[in-house]
């Protein structure tokens, strides 16, 4: 059984003019436990909405999202919050670190909503992503690449079964993007977490063996991103 099973997932938003605008219409999508897959999707293909639906931040108009046997779309909001805190790690394009908190606190804060803050594990993860010497630095005191690493550590803090990454290299230069992507893939593999990345960055997509086009997957998508020839990292 796949870790993530999506069937007939639909989501629309009402436009300012009134009519409903379909954003996500995915008949089927599966992801196995521990697998790593990239979805190619530029703006307009509903990639962030798709990830929000998987994470339970948004609820679908129709269809099901099943994670590790639990139907996310059928859960009430507190249960979805709990599931997100315990089973899903989320890496955002803009990192979304809390500026008033140190690196360590950012990671521990994520933990506190799940199994509980574990200072040792938080420090260990930051050490793993190369920030052992910057535990008490604030995000503004770090480079964008370092901020991304904090976001990676935070996403893995609660031993998630699935890590979602939305354009994780979008704000990084090519060198940092390569390093960051490698780090995300390595740490997900070390933590037995499946990885689902959505990106339109050819460098990212080229690094994955398994790449699918979100435009093909999502019948509501309006544009498509070319899929590069796969290369092994």
């Amino acid at each position: 059984m796949a870790l993530l099973e999506i069937r007939d997932l639909k989501k629309s938003f009402r436009t300012p003019d009134g009519p409903l605008h379909p954003v996500v219409d995915i008949p089927a999508f599966d992801l196995d436990a521990g697998a790593q897959i990239a979805l190619a999707g530029p703006s307009g293909t509903g990639k962030t909405t798709f990830l929000h639906l998987i994470a339970g931040i948004l609820t679908p108009d129709a269809g099901t999202v099943r994670l590790d046997g639990t139907e996310v779309s059928a859960l009430d909001e507190p249960a979805r919050d709990r599931l997100r805190a315990t089973s899903i790690g989320y890496i955002f394009q803009t990192f979304n670190l809390l500026q008033g908190f140190t690196c360590l606190e950012n990671v521990m804060l994520g933990m506190s909503f799940g199994p509980g803050a574990d200072r040792g594990r938080a420090a260990g993860l930051l050490e793993r992503v190369g920030l052992g010497a910057r535990l008490h630095h604030y995000p503004r005191q770090l480079s964008t690449g370092q901020q991304q690493r904090v976001a990676v550590a935070r996403a893995l803090a609660n031993h998630p079964r699935l890590v979602l990454a939305d354009e994780p290299t979008g704000n990084l230069d090519p060198e940092n993007a390569r390093d960051s992507l490698a780090l995300i893939r390595e740490t997900c593999a070390e933590n037995n977490a499946a990885l689902l990345i959505v990106s339109h960055d050819q460098t990212v997509l080229g690094a994955f063996g398994a790449v699918r086009s979100l435009a093909d997957l999502n019948r509501a998508a309006t544009t498509a991103t070319p899929i590069p020839n796969p290369t092994r990292p």
């Binding site: 994470a55 315990t86 989320y90 809390l98 994520g110």
Partner: peptide, 16 residues
């Protein structure tokens, strides 16, 4: 608003 949304995305319940 952004910080609160991040907290929620990390799994913070509304009541928290």
């Amino acid at each position: 608003k952004r910080d609160l949304a991040i907290l929620r995305a990390l799994g913070a319940r509304r009541r928290v």
